[in-house]
């Protein structure tokens, strides 16, 4: 395997939560948004991250980009530890890792023209670039992401959600980053536009040789674009495998539940299939269950699950599962 572009080891992010009405000197509660996540990302690879709301996907993305400080663990980007860098060093490094946001309109400053928004990374990192070149680059990129360059002086509120997301993509790509982190880039768009944006991203990734981390809560979207998929639950990685393997032979009970919750557009098959349905709610990340965090909702939970966090087992084809009772689900039953 080639040198990974991104190497994440035991990354943990915790937030201090001060209960309402507490004394100033009481210790704040720790909200463990991400706990001990490790993975490698090869150059040009796309890793999909799925999980339900509150599973720490976005926090993971922000910790890698660096807008939220990591509590522990390391994030090595091309062998350099991003977490231990000084603020100014870090700022220089930001041009290699760019991010696309969930809410396309909210991610654009309403008082700036589209041209200024897209040019901002360029004018920030290369302030001496002549204005004509900036304009040419912006026009080029707008065309590349499917926007007409003559819209350069428009404002974000004059665009649709899909167009705004294209603007966000153009802004992320103007510095030709090596790693692109997409934080639920399509969840705020409607389905037809989702497909366009996902296809655009896939195309750009192929053409520019981007590495990507693609976060979504919709498995079918992630499956389409990713090489590998990681499944998160309550800040922990549950399972990580090749996209196809994960979708056809999921090993972890949580992944199995996730996959079987995707509806089949055929009422006969839909009614006939057996599926493990998850009960209850996501436990509070303020007081996660001991041992395996999924045990409170797991259909296969045993007494031993409460004792220690499950060891990650590596199966054939770098298929990682954090469950000692993993077993493939009957695929025929599913489809």
């Amino acid at each position: 395997m080639t040198q990974p572009i991104l190497h994440v080891r035991d990354l943990a992010v915790a937030f201090d939560i001060r209960p309402q009405g507490a004394w100033p000197w009481t210790k704040p509660l720790k909200l463990h948004a991400v706990g001990g996540v490790s993975f490698d990302l090869a150059p040009g690879e796309c890793l999909g991250v799925v999980g339900e709301s509150g599973s720490g996907k976005s926090t993971l993305a922000r910790a890698i980009v660096g807008t939220i400080p990591a509590t522990s663990g390391e994030v090595l980007f091309e062998g350099q530890d991003l977490a231990s860098m000084s603020v100014s060093e870090r700022r220089v490094h930001r041009k290699d890792v760019q991010m696309i946001f969930q809410d396309p309109l909210a991610a654009l400053n309403p008082r700036m023209t589209v041209g200024d928004i897209i040019a901002e990374p360029l004018t920030t990192h290369y302030p001496q670039t002549p204005a004509s070149e900036v304009k040419a680059r912006v026009g080029e990129l707008m065309e590349r992401v499917g926007l007409l360059p003559n819209l350069i002086n428009r404002y974000p509120h004059e665009f649709s959600g899909g167009q705004c997301q294209r603007i966000g993509i153009a802004r992320a790509l103007i510095l030709q980053p090596k790693l692109l982190i997409c934080d639920e880039p399509v969840s705020a768009l409607d389905v037809s536009v989702q497909a366009q944006v996902v296809n655009l991203l896939a195309e750009l990734r192929r053409d520019m040789g981007l590495s990507m981390i693609f976060i979504a809560h919709d498995l079918s979207v992630v499956k389409h674009i990713s090489d590998r998929i990681a499944v998160m639950y309550l800040g922990k990685l549950m399972e990580m495998a090749e996209a196809k393997t994960l979708c056809t032979v999921p090993q972890h009970p949580y992944t199995q539940a996730l996959i079987s919750s995707v509806p089949i557009p055929d009422p006969v098959l839909e009614a006939a299939r057996k599926r493990p349905i998850l009960e209850g709610e996501l436990p509070s990340p303020l007081a996660p269950p001991s041992g395996c965090v999924f045990r409170t909702r797991c259909p296969k939970a045993q007494a031993s699950c409460a004792e220690a966090p499950p060891r990650v087992e590596v199966l054939e084809g770098d298929h990682r599962v954090a469950c000692p009772f993993h077993a493939p689900m009957d695929v025929l039953e599913r489809a």
């Binding site: 980009v65 890792v97 991010m99 400053n109």
Partner: peptide, 25 residues
Amino acid sequence: KEFVEAAVAIGVSPAKIILRHIVPN
């Protein structure tokens, strides 16, 4: 707002964020 976070992620300095992104809004 996400556009401020986007500016942080881009690497814009705090002074510029205040002047370019916060004050105009």
